[in-house]
């Protein structure tokens, strides 16, 4: 049992609160707005100590920044997107690295996947399910989806590991050094196919054995891809619908029932 402020808290909460302490030390309260969605915020990450089979819990900025992006201005430009000289839209969303592609030649994630694998601690994550209700007149599915948020977690586990790859980045203008991380994603399992039904992808969740191998193993490219493509068993996960304004709630993961939301049916 863990204690924070002399109060009993769960182990995962203890880790979260200690990480929050560190994050707040570096937090600029004057300039940061309330952040939602793609917040590029700090996450608790297990990073291997150099040369030994041990790790530190560190904070990394979620959103991989390749070393050749020069400064924050350039990072912002690539993250938010822009039209290039030919009028083509260019944007890099680096929150996630696709397991099937991250080792391909010239991919920005390749070297990190080979040399800097880590584990992102998570208690659960949010995704949106797209539902196309029948048109009242024709009975056919409408073309515009109604989106319902879900909270997904691993049954019986306060926290779990997501495969990650990290990159240290230096702002060439200010000298700021920051560790950045991308969460590896894989094809959705049966549960996530129903929940994240627009993209049918999910984070690569690893059991303890695979997590150890991912971080400490001397792995071939084939094995890195193989572990990266791990589909965590759907029967060991749970998903519940939550309120659409979950970002504003004190307990964002609190279940919420929608009368018009069809239940997820799985044959596991």
């Amino acid at each position: 049992m863990c204690y924070y402020n002399r109060q009993k808290v769960t182990r995962s909460e203890y880790i979260r609160l200690k990480q929050l302490e560190k994050a707040i030390l570096n937090y600029d309260f004057l300039s940061r707005d309330l952040q939602v969605g793609f917040d590029y915020g700090l996450n608790a990450v297990l990073q291997r100590k150099y040369g030994v089979e041990d790790f530190d819990i560190v904070q990394m900025e979620w959103g991989f920044i390749p070393p050749y992006w020069k400064n924050r201005e350039e990072v912002k430009k690539y993250r938010e997107g822009f039209k290039d000289n030919q009028g083509k839209w260019v944007q890099y969303i680096t929150l996630n690295a696709t397991a099937e592609e991250m080792l391909l030649p010239r991919k920005m994630y390749r070297e990190a996947a080979l040399k800097r694998r880590c584990l992102v601690l998570s208690t659960g994550f949010f995704e949106w399910r797209h539902v196309f209700p029948p048109n009242k007149r024709t009975g056919l599915p409408t073309k515009t989806a109604v989106k319902y948020p879900y909270y997904i977690s691993v049954k019986g586990q306060d926290y779990f590991y997501m495969a990650g790859i990290w990159q240290e980045w230096t702002d060439q203008d200010t000298g700021e050094i920051v560790k950045t991380v991308s969460v590896v994603t894989t094809e959705a399992n049966e549960l996530m196919t129903e929940v994240h039904n627009s993209k049918k992808r999910m984070p690569t969740i690893l059991n303890e054995e695979l997590a150890y191998e991912w971080m400490f193993g001397d792995l071939s490219e084939e094995r890195i891809t193989e572990i990266g493509k791990t589909k965590f068993p759907a029967k060991e996960m749970e998903a519940c619908s939550i309120a659409k304004d979950f970002r504003e709630k004190l307990e964002p993961a609190e279940p919420y029932t929608y009368e018009d939301l069809p239940a997820i049916e799985l044959s596991l």
Binding site: M1, Y4, N5, Q7, V9, L17, L20
Partner: peptide, 19 residues
């Protein structure tokens, strides 16, 4: 907000010391 065993939630200070 934080969570005690049994999913009971309560307020706490960050850092510790002002519960």
């Amino acid at each position: 907000r934080t969570t005690a065993p049994g999913n009971q939630t309560f307020w706490t200070s960050i850092p510790e010391g002002r519960q």
